[in-house]
Structures are given as C-alpha cells and as structure tokens.
Design a protein around this nucleic acid. Sequence first.
DNA 1: TCCTTATGTACAA
DNA 2: TGTACCTAAGGAC
Length: 274
Amino acid sequence: MPEGHTIHRLAQDYATAFLGTSPHVTSPQGKFSDAAALLTGSELTHTEAHGKHLFLGFRDADWIHIHLGLFGKVNFGKVNAGDAPAPPPTDTVRLRLANSTAYVDLRGPTTCALITHPEKQAIHDRLGPDPLRADADPHQAYRRISRSRTTIAALLMDQKVIAGVGNVYRAEVLFRHRIDPYRAGKDITPTQWDAIWADLVDLMHEGVRNNRIDTVRPEHTPEAMGRPPRVDDHGGEVYVYRRATLPCHICGGEIRTADLAARNLFWCPNCQTP
DNA sequence: TCCTTATGTACAA
DNA sequence: TGTACCTAAGGAC
C-alpha cells in the first residue's frame, strides 16, 4: 500500500536483486503471461520511479510499467545456493522475477503492462514533479497550485500537480505546516509552498530509507512527550493520519476526519489554520 | 465465515 | 459523484 517513497524504494530493491541479470519472468496468475514470455531471459537494464509509477527496463528497450494502486504488494525473497529454492508462487502472483539468488512477487497491481519508450515518456509527461526525483521543479507544481481555487488537500493528491504524495503525506505535511486542508491553492504563499516542498523532499527521502512514513518531529515523539509509543498500522509515527477522535499530539484537541474526493482526510482544526 | 477497510486511479454519467 | 478494479488483513460473529 504505497505512496511515492514505497515505489522509489522498490526501484532500488529491484535493482539490487536483479539489475544486470537476466531473470526468469513469469505470470503465475496469467494476466501478464504473454509479456512475461517475451521478456524472460532478457537483462534487466534499468529501474526507475516517478511518483507512484514503477518502470523496469529490459535490454535497453522494453519497459514493464507497474502501478500498485491501493492493493498492490511486492514481496522479495532470497535464494541461496544449497538452500530451498524459491517457494512456488501462489495463484495471485501477477509477476515473478527469479534469478539464482533472489525472487520477487508482485500481487494485486492496478497496472502491470509492457510498454514502449514513447508510452513511458507519455506517463512522465502527464505527471507533476516528484519530490524524490533530482529533475523535479517545485515551481511547476506551484504554478498550478497558485492559480487554483481547489483545496490544497485535493491538489496535493493530484498526481498531475505533484507526483508521489498520497493520503498519509498529504495529511501529515499539512499538519506540519499548520495549514487547514480546505484552504484554496491560490491562498498558499510562495514561501509556504517552498517550505512544504522542502519538507516533502526530506520526509519522503527518509521514507525511502526506512521504508515507512514517520512525520513526528523529535520534540513531539512519544519519548519526548512522555506518552506511550504508538506506531500506526501503516508502520510509522504520525500526527493525524488515521487518528480521528484521538487527542492531537500538540494541542490535545480532537483530530477530525472527513471525506474529501472519496478519500479520508485527517486534520487538527485547532492547530491548522484556514 | 463474513464484513470492512486500505498509503489509488480511471472512467461513466 | 459514483462505481469498478485488484488483494489481504483484521475484527465481528
């Protein structure tokens, strides 16, 4: 269940296990069988992430485009010489790569498709700047935000505006900057946007390193605040995400939740100003 | 065993 | 705005 940090981490992990090797490619579940047959035995030459999109490049020519959606999961395993071989894939595995030392299973993705380079480029072209990519231009995002009457909460989730932010980073970064999620994009100042962007760059890089989302500042950690540690189900320590009706770590007020564009929004109405 | 929920997106109306 | 899609875990019975 991924935001951009998960996908960038996957790009690294696929590279570590398979780059420069020519893995066996299969689709036990069947939906990717034709492409798997074309690719199997080809060298994995590139792995790349842009926002929540993952690209695996084979023989400098063909790309697998993967998008995990809400349910997609990836599971890596090691195979050591003399050890038990990779376990047989279950019937929900859409894509398995396997070489002499490792295997990786992909389940439940929204997208797993073989695409050409122009098709890949078209995906990059429709995505906004990604805080995890060196080529990202934050002003490209701000140009859209500063002209929009849409709420900043919705804009942060719009992958054409900024790529890689999901429901957790959206809620948490707005809390960290004390911005009410319903504030219009056009009311976000350049200074505020620069701060939000810089924060996302830091938070998401840490997310890649740790493979989880932690957003609580050192002075607000459970230890610093003298409260019991609480790690959210998603695996990290957070201020507001999925903490509806619980007390705010800073003001003690009740965290609120609401539906916004079919997603759960979380915020502290006391700490975050309209 | 059934029901709900989820870090997402695309498309129809 | 609503719905379809894809999967697995956790909680209610």
